[in-house]
């Protein structure tokens, strides 16, 4: 009993803010007497998600898949370019300044440009998620390749290490925690960017479900899509943060 009470108290101390927002939302809808076509109540939204999960699942799957594949491709490209830059100071000198500029470009605001370039379909959504995850991976991996355990570079030199062995046994493992930071930073952003892209031009996914149901005036479903999308991006962040923590324990 006391344990349950303690648990409830911990929950309240952690989530009072989120619960407060939900409460304000519910009260707002009830007191303003708003038409449910404008703003549905949170209870109606939750009810729709819980009673008809089948309407959401294919879209959840689609968004998750696109965000995940995009993240993997972007991270892989980021690592590859970082390693190439590490191997060649010349390439590093040429690539780093443009990468810094592109990194600060608001990618999400560029979605229409990419849509015109690649077409109104999943390729654009995928391209956005790849771009979103590429730059952090590249920047963090490159700095990680140089962030070595104290003295280890000298030890490898004296042991007569080849550059390839040095990369494989020292620089790459050293970069793992940094890379995981990049993944933590990109994971939720990939989901959010995929949603925006689906919203603008998708044919599937939660962003698309959101627009389509809104135009059909099915507001509970539309807000449900937004709610599920929020849960999805929070989950992506939490998973990536767990992964990062595990990596820090294991590699540092």
């Amino acid at each position: 009993m006391t344990a349950a009470l303690g648990g409830a108290r911990t929950f309240a101390s952690r989530y009072w803010g989120v619960l407060g927002i939900l409460a304000i939302w519910q009260v707002y809808v009830s007191t303003q007497n708003l038409n449910s076509i404008v703003v549905p109540s949170p209870t109606a939204v939750f009810a729709d998600v819980l009673t008809e999960p089948g309407a959401y699942l294919p879209h959840v799957w689609s968004t998750t898949w696109v965000a995940f594949v995009g993240l993997c491709v972007g991270v892989t490209l980021g690592i590859a370019v970082a390693v190439l830059s590490w191997l060649s100071p010349l390439l590093s000198g040429i690539v780093t300044p443009p990468a810094m500029v592109f990194r600060s470009v608001p990618v999400v605001a560029m979605i229409p440009v990419i849509a015109r370039l690649l077409g109104y379909d999943i390729r654009t959504v995928l391209a956005i998620t790849v771009i979103i995850s590429f730059f952090p991976s590249f920047v963090f991996t490159l700095s990680g390749l140089r962030d070595l355990p104290a003295g280890s570079a000298d030890v490898f030199s004296v042991l007569g290490s080849s550059r390839l062995t040095y990369l494989r046994r020292l620089a790459l493992p050293s970069a793992v925690p940094n890379l995981l930071v990049a993944i933590r930073l990109s994971a939720a952003n990939c989901v959010l960017a995929a949603l925006v892209a689906e919203f603008l031009m998708g044919t599937q996914g939660l962003g698309y479900l959101f627009v389509r149901t809104r135009s059909e005036m099915d507001m509970a479903r539309s807000w449900g899509a937004a709610l599920v999308a929020t849960v999805l991006s929070v989950s992506a962040f939490v998973l990536a943060a767990r992964l990062e923590q595990w990596g820090r324990e294991r590699w540092r």
Binding site: L192, L195, V196, F210, A226, A229, T230, S233, V234, F237
Partner: peptide, 10 residues
Amino acid sequence: AVMHAVPLIA
């Protein structure tokens, strides 16, 4: 964290 994760399009 949750506010950050809410899709702005929503």
